[in-house]
Design a protein around this nucleic acid. Sequence first.
DNA 1: TACAAATGTAATTATTATAATTACAGTATC
DNA 2: GATACTGTAATTATAATAATTACATTTGTA
Lengths: 147, 147
Amino acid sequence: MYCNKINYSTELVKTRFSIALHIMTLLSMYDNDWLSSTLIASSLNMNPVLVRKEIATLKEGGYIESKEGKNGGVRLLKTSNKILLSDIFNLIKGSDTVLSLLKNTPNPNCKVGKQINEKLASVMNTIDNAISKELQKQTLEDFKNQF
Amino acid sequence: MYCNKINYSTELVKTRFSIALHIMTLLSMYDNDWLSSTLIASSLNMNPVLVRKEIATLKEGGYIESKEGKNGGVRLLKTSNKILLSDIFNLIKGSDTVLSLLKNTPNPNCKVGKQINEKLASVMNTIDNAISKELQKQTLEDFKNQF
DNA sequence: TACAAATGTAATTATTATAATTACAGTATC
DNA sequence: GATACTGTAATTATAATAATTACATTTGTA
């Protein structure tokens, strides 16, 4: 068993949702099998280690389980018609927002600069909520059935 | 007059919407004045050259005008109650999407890999449309009046 | 029991994207 | 003509992302 938390950025990288949805689509397509990270990585055409990191997030979210050792791999824990695209989005997103504020601190001596981050943060949350609401309309199964 | 198009990425950088909205808020707050890029940059606490690049985009969109030379600067071309936050979002966004596909080409020999980009692209557009629809609810004036 | 094939994760390196800076031509005002 | 702007190219610096290497651990199976 492993105890330490991996140091994978909690930032919502632009592509992470695509990676997670691709993985989840494969798992729902072949939901009787344990799929290996190498196989998944070959579908994505990306590094297996990165796939395993994304899998760690999906596991934490309770959507998948993994089995170590020979013939191991990952598979869904829930049926795909109970998983909404918004579930995947919200999990990946964490406490980050899809659009973000500047790193630099705006000028506190300026009427606008002093308050802009607070006001922008509210807009960012509104944006994320709108995305989540939209993605509630589609289940993983709906998505998978397009293939 | 300048003829060449500047080489500013058309990619929707996570922070560009914040930058643009900050600029537009300043312009609507002080809409009788020509504000210089240096002044705007000092409110944002960022480089004036980057501000001027963002200003170039806002000009192309027809929302602001600029005046060169001494006592020059930028100001709004439209009244702030005719500018929706979605207008600014869509301008900055261009043909990009807020979330994106992988750079790597997914495996064309995989049932999922072969079609995933097409399907994901559709989700990405859905996301952007949801954001745009949400941001239609607020005008620049509404936003400015919070300050 | 030894081997093979997996996950899990740390650590490092490579690559790309973003931001800042420098430089300077052009323009308008005083 | 000096000054204070915009516009933009080119370069450099920094940060973020992705890939790789390495290896401990686990599990099935010959």
